[in-house]
């Protein structure tokens, strides 16, 4: 970590590749499958956000954890800690986003898909990894 901080890679915005997206859906007790929801959505910004943007910083930190696990899945070496972090992100986001909604009770599933940055009709969704939330 010390070396990564002292000698960062500095390769910003180099190549457009597929973007990992964290999604979740609920499977109701009667087996009905709900739609997939994107869990990490960029928070709104104001002019203040140019200098102070805690929601944006949190969002980027969450995304980094998802990106890292997605990369590990792509390499075929998913790390248990990375996975646990992603599951915790799913739990946190599901609770925050759907607590007020009239969602049917059931089992939550999550997945990380590889999506093109600019989606077009007919894009195939590639599932990088996924799982269910512990009940």
């Amino acid at each position: 970590m010390l070396l990564r901080l002292l000698f960062p890679s500095w390769a910003f915005f180099d190549r457009v590749t597929e973007v990992p997206r964290l999604q979740a859906r609920v499977t109701a007790h009667d087996g009905t499958l709900g739609p997939w929801h994107d869990l990490l959505q960029a928070p709104p910004r104001t002019w203040r956000s140019v200098l102070y943007h805690p929601e944006g910083t949190t969002h980027l930190a969450l995304h980094s954890a998802v990106d890292r696990f997605a990369m590990e899945c792509t390499l075929g070496e998913p790390d248990a800690t990375s996975r646990a972090l992603v599951v915790a992100i799913v739990e946190h986001q599901v609770r925050a986003r759907f607590a007020q909604d009239d969602q049917p009770a059931g089992r939550w599933e999550w997945r990380i898909i590889a999506a093109p940055a600019v989606p077009t009709d007919g894009d195939a969704v590639r599932v990088m990894c996924g799982g269910g939330l512990p009940s």
Binding site: M1, R4, L5, L6, P8, W10, F12, L60, A61
Partner: peptide, 15 residues
């Protein structure tokens, strides 16, 4: 960085 197992805001933490 250690607490969250990575950077909070990409390369800006490093800088």
């Amino acid at each position: 960085a250690v607490r969250v197992r990575g950077t909070m805001n990409g390369g800006s933490d490093g800088m």
